[in-house]
Design a binder for these strands. Structure first.
Lengths: 217, 217
DNA sequence: ACAAAAGTGTTGGTGTTACACCCATGT
DNA sequence: ACATGGGTGTAACACCAACACTTTTGT
């Protein structure tokens, strides 16, 4: 039997297959809080509860494409930082049937969100105020948070949460929220000084010294 | 309709599903080289080529269980450091059909391997001498190597590649192979000094000063 | 005595932590 | 003038790369 013949005769329906879905944890920072996009479930199971946006993986799309599509359909957002997080495969994570979930996380600056574009049921909720979610989605969010907390120290992902032009106090606040700790101003500035370029613009209008506006290098 | 009724009526076969498999990259160090376990494929596709050990995910086993099972079936090994690596979802990674692969990597000390236990077709090959593999398995191995190179710096995974009792020159060699660079003896010892405890045994028989034997703390 | 590899001490540089202080604005 | 938060300099400390040196074995 040649490889051609083999492939022709191969019947992939002989096995009972799990379903595969993608779950998206889209984070933003709004009102000085880390927030995550959630939808209210219309259908069973867990009808009425909040859950991460999710979609089944189409037979002719890659996982990354699927994640992008899910994000776009829920938010209209494109070109967002999106990264695979972990794949969850417990047997009973979904009571309907065996569903394996490939989770992704994404980061958006509040300034990129057109809140009116969001579907009716999709809204941001402060991560720390979430009580309980459908499926294992709390675990996914916790894991995503952890990943961000680590990656912020050796990558530039924090800049995804800030507008193109920003002040250093703004940026520092982002770091503090993601890391969940207060940082020393002087030390923070030294650490990120090589990742930014200063503009000659200032942000005035406050009742104290105006802060300089920077851009990402 | 209640949730009970909904679940009862739910027909999961309405959708065309991808298959899900687990691929295992089992690394060891043998003859001062990083090696990975490969099997020669008996069947199409890629018949005759080398590939990572793999298995389809059973409908009633978790991903972690599936990975452990695959590892055990190929090697007889249990209680090995095993961690999920990444999930690969390109459309045509397998010519038979759409297969999503959840990859795991594992580390074993050479001293734990009973080479006779290995199935006929499963053997270790030096990673640097691999020419070409079936599917996208070269990518998986490269990604696993990368993960190890990072994780070695802030975890204890390197100790998985060394017997229970070891000398510091041995341990240093492991680090050097994984990191692919020479290390300074004095600095290396300072760095790991808090992860080990010394025994009062010495490894003699060499034609120079015997090295002290240590254990993991 | 010598070769060879094990094992230790020291120095200089770099990055981090903590604090003290100065600066520019609105009221 | 003062309150407020923006912005900078510096000293103490920990960490790390690099090198020089001592120690213990077999021959």
């Amino acid at each position: 039997m040649t490889e051609q013949e083999f492939l022709k005769n191969y019947d992939s329906s002989n096995y009972q297959k799990p379903s595969v879905a993608v779950d998206i944890a889209l984070f933003t920072i709004h009102e000085n809080q880390l927030q995550v996009l959630l939808t209210k479930r219309q259908a069973h199971p867990f009808a009425g509860m909040l859950a991460l946006p999710a979609t089944f993986v189409g037979i002719d799309e890659t996982l990354d494409e699927c994640a992008k599509r899910a994000l776009y359909q829920k938010t209209g957002l494109q070109n967002i930082y999106l990264e695979q997080l972990y794949t969850w495969g417990d047997i009973n994570r979904d009571p309907r049937m065996r569903i394996i979930s490939v989770s992704y996380y994404a980061l958006v600056s509040e300034s990129n969100i057109q809140f009116s574009e969001l579907e009716q049921e999709a809204k941001f909720y402060p991560v720390d105020e979430i009580k309980s979610l459908a499926f294992d989605h709390e675990k996914i969010i916790a894991y995503g948070r952890e990943r961000i907390r680590n990656k912020i120290n050796y990558t530039d992902i924090a800049f995804s949460l800030v507008p193109e032009e920003f002040t250093l106090p703004q940026l520092q606040k982002i770091y503090e929220i993601l890391l969940n700790q207060k940082l020393y101003k002087a030390n923070f500035r030294k650490k990120i000084s090589d990742k930014i370029i200063s503009t000659d613009k200032m942000l005035s209008g406050t009742k104290h010294r105006p802060s300089r506006i920077y851009k990402k290098k």
